[in-house]
Nucleic acid binder design. Structure first.
Lengths: 119, 119
DNA sequence: GCAATAACTATCAAGATTGATAGTATATTA
DNA sequence: TAATATACTATCAATCTTGATAGTTATTGC
């Protein structure tokens, strides 16, 4: 059986997506990205602070996910100092801020699931 | 805007999550789940209709993802008939409907990204 | 008879993601 | 002097996700 492609493909950074929903999910999908964004929503944070916020993620994974978020323009990375121990701060970009309504919706929904299952 | 997430560990179906955001993402994460939900948002669909909606996903993956969405209570599966070719319809459950505001937020954001990058 | 259709499943394999563990440089603190 | 702190990186490996391809059952249409 053959199917025609009737939807418009979306292109972004050299990747092709079947729709804008899948484009969005490619940016914020994965196990930790939304959690990181959640912890950055109110204020910038240092690497060590993020680690404390998310004790169950390994340093390697946190580092990788932060890099992807930077690559996609969601967070910015600012370094203070030259020699160790340096200070590094992560912060939502304007683009990252534009994600806050989505994050809020996800958070509300997650809270609702958790509270309803707890009854 | 203020929204809060309980920082204690959340348990759900035997799994532990560091927060409700990660719980939510475990249900809707993955490459195809939100896309499936998007195509079911307005009406129930047959398996073959979903295939036409999403030509770039393989049958195996579509099948697996639909099963997970059923397992998590997001979609329901109704069979009409006994002998092949049977008719199977997929439909959002009430719980699946509760996800619609989140889906709307994701869609809006995705559309915005796509349109802004096109300019 | 033969192909097409419906809704899948089976098998194999590639790719992506995540984790465990240890190591790096240098400054400050005890 | 030794330990601690900072922000990572390196290596290896397990696991999870997704894809490619082919096969299944029984009915309908040509």
């Amino acid at each position: 059986m053959k199917f025609e492609c009737q939807n418009d493909l979306v292109e972004m950074s050299g990747k092709l997506y079947p729709c804008t929903v899948s484009l969005a999910m490619d940016i914020i999908g994965g196990k930790w990205k939304t959690v990181i964004l959640y912890h950055l929503k109110d204020s910038k944070k240092r690497y060590s602070e993020l680690r404390k916020d998310m004790p169950t993620v390994t340093e390697r994974t946190l580092s990788l996910q932060l890099k992807e978020l930077q690559k996609d323009g969601m967070v910015s990375r600012t370094v203070y100092g030259v020699k160790p121990p340096i200070r590094v701060e992560y912060c939502l970009t304007d683009f990252g801020q534009s994600f806050l309504p989505v994050l809020q919706a996800i958070t509300n929904w997650g809270n609702r699931i958790a509270s309803e299952s707890a009854t």
